[in-house]
Design a binder for these strands. Sequence first.
DNA 1: GTCTATATCCGGATAGAC
DNA 2: GTCTATCCGGATATAGAC
Lengths: 223, 223
Amino acid sequence: MARDAEATRRRILAVALALFREKGFAKTTMRQVAREAGMSLGAAYHHFDGKHAIVQAYYAQQNAAHEAAVRAALEQAGGGLRERLGVAFHTGLDVRAGDRALMRELAPLVIGPDEALSAFSPESEPLRNQSIALMRDLVDDPSVPEDVRDPMALALWALFLGVLLYFTRDTSPGQAKTRALVDGALDLAVVTMGAIGLPAFAPVRAQLTSLLRDAELLPDELA
Amino acid sequence: MARDAEATRRRILAVALALFREKGFAKTTMRQVAREAGMSLGAAYHHFDGKHAIVQAYYAQQNAAHEAAVRAALEQAGGGLRERLGVAFHTGLDVRAGDRALMRELAPLVIGPDEALSAFSPESEPLRNQSIALMRDLVDDPSVPEDVRDPMALALWALFLGVLLYFTRDTSPGQAKTRALVDGALDLAVVTMGAIGLPAFAPVRAQLTSLLRDAELLPDELA
DNA sequence: GTCTATATCCGGATAGAC
DNA sequence: GTCTATCCGGATATAGAC
């Protein structure tokens, strides 16, 4: 019964996330998850290949929430590139505001060798492409030269990853520093994207595109 | 007998690194390390608080090797800022060229919550300060306005961390992409550092310094 | 075929005797 | 400073229930 299986999966995920948030990822055991979800250890492992698989499901959930929130907020927001980028980034932080401690604990997995969880792995391609596509949509603006839009989308995605890492460790009230970092970094990014088209910046532009495209910002495996 | 203890420590570290490089960090067990070092599990744990403590010792060793290699290479190298930065970054890669696989596996620990190993933790301050100080020395150049030297040193340190992460995942022959990334990023950095002093760039300069200093590039805990 | 339970393995970590 | 014994939890094997 796939229907029941799906419900069971959701129940395990909910229980596990509650435990992760309450006691942390490392301190939560699969035995606890199974017990609180009302099943045996073996049963829990039947639905999730392990703790890491639960995290994977969590990422997908978070990603969907971000995407939906951004699309909704963009309906309201005005039209400028800078404003739309601000909405996307700040919404991304809003969605995750309650999970900073958990994300801080999970951050290692994102750059780790575990293929399923690494942000750079083939297994994460769907999630990654979804995020990059969002940035690509935002950057589809007359003020941005067409040939730098793709590399810029990639760079913005990488920037957002960095911002999230910063966010998880930012203990300033209301994570004001992260908010300021976002605003400053986006100001710079927009100025750069605007200036890059000027004839005077042709050399820098060639350098940037070669950095981000020919040499590729991300290593081979990301293709 | 502190003398014997120190020798035992070194023996454990050497054995552990050999195993890490041969079979990987995760697949190497403390039991193996102890056995190959000719002692019991408990004895090994007496000298190192755990696997993570061995990694910590490895980082310190690597850091010292990089610093020494850079200082030596700079004696030979000419005087330009760009050239000296290139020497520092490329030497950093040279020193670690044989350990890409291991570093890739250890990368998660660097951004992880484990205080002892995180690059951003108070416990790592000595190592971190050593690296930032090296960057600060390099940036002590007439072409760089004095008030941006400190934030630039911090930014260069962060850039180097990112380069190392890229390096561990770069499967291009001879890690040519990483080398190109270093050259391109440093070109941009030097151009930026030079241009930032011009009156026309006063607004951007204010933005940069506020980003890197007032708002701080790194979160609260890094002070 | 879908799901659950028990038993067991393995390795990191610790306790306490010597 | 070294040992043995033990704990704990992630992961797996496997048998069987529905």
